[in-house]
């Protein structure tokens, strides 16, 4: 019996690890850039790795290093980095219905990045309850270690790597939009969701083009919610009107 449980756990751990592999295309090049920038900003290699291990939040790490290097007050550095990460507050509640009672879950939330959230929101409901923790650990460990390893690589040899293979850092990050698209694709079957998701993505894209990537994510999501509820109420009114006309 216990052997069977162990085999289920290791199988789901491996499944999670395998399904997180597409994330590496996005994580490693960005982590290499972070390691390189941290070194150029006066941090040591170990310090860069420690930041990636403990904070583990892409954009805010870049901001942390840049603000410290520019001599900004430290309380302001902390405030701004936390502000960038504020969007993470909606991730945990969204996956909560699929998490079993286990005291380790809150600690595992350290690995709940944007991309792991996107993956977990789609995959956790499809898995059996006993497989979910193993899957989540497998996926988040691959992502976390790739981020830490990429930072170390960037700190040690980032300059040489970006000079030798300049196109690699340009091509590999396409894995992220490709993965997000695949995660959203099943919802395109519904016209309501297709319009909502399309308009959300366009608003976010426009914000990103204007250089406001981090603000763009929550604002675009709120715009998307307005589209969703607006369209839903329009459809409801239309149905009620046609029923009224039929009954009258």
């Amino acid at each position: 019996m216990s052997l069977q449980i162990a085999s289920t756990e290791s199988r789901s751990l491996l499944l999670g690890a395998r399904e997180a592999i597409p994330l590496l295309g996005g994580y490693i090049p960005v982590a290499i850039s972070f390691g390189l920038i941290a070194i150029q900003s006066g941090f040591s290699g170990w310090e860069a790795v420690l930041i990636s291990t403990l904070v583990y939040a892409g954009a805010s790490q870049f901001l942390f290093v840049a603000m410290v290097a520019s001599g900004a007050p430290l309380w302001f550095v902390v405030l701004m980095t936390l502000l960038i990460n504020a969007r993470h507050v909606v991730y945990g509640p969204n996956i909560a219905p699929w998490l079993n009672k286990n005291r380790w879950w809150p600690w595992l939330m350290h690995g709940l990045t944007d991309q792991i959230f996107a993956l977990a929101l789609v995959r956790l409901p499809q898995l059996e309850a006993r497989e979910r923790m193993g899957w989540y650990i497998g996926a988040s460990i691959v992502a976390w270690f790739s981020w830490i390893g990429g930072t170390a690589l960037g700190a040690v040899a980032g300059k040489e790597l970006t000079q030798r293979w300049p196109l690699l850092g340009e091509i590999m990050p396409f894995a992220l939009p490709a993965l997000f698209l695949v995660l959203l694709a099943p919802r395109f079957a519904s016209r309501l969701w297709a319009i909502t998701l399309g308009s959300t993505a366009i608003v976010a894209l426009l914000f990103a083009v204007s250089g406001m990537k981090n603000a763009g994510i929550p604002i675009a999501a709120v715009c998307g919610a307005l589209v969703y509820y607006g369209l839903s109420s329009l459809v409801r009114n239309k149905v009620q009107r046609s029923r009224g006309a039929r009954d009258g």
Partner: peptide
């Protein structure tokens, strides 16, 4: 609203990540 917000956050991340590193 929370069940709606989850997919919307993914769509927003999709939109943001579409912008190439070198435009």
């Amino acid at each position: 609203w929370l069940t709606v917000l989850g997919p919307l956050m993914i769509a927003a991340m999709f939109g943001v990540s579409l912008v190439p590193s070198k435009v």
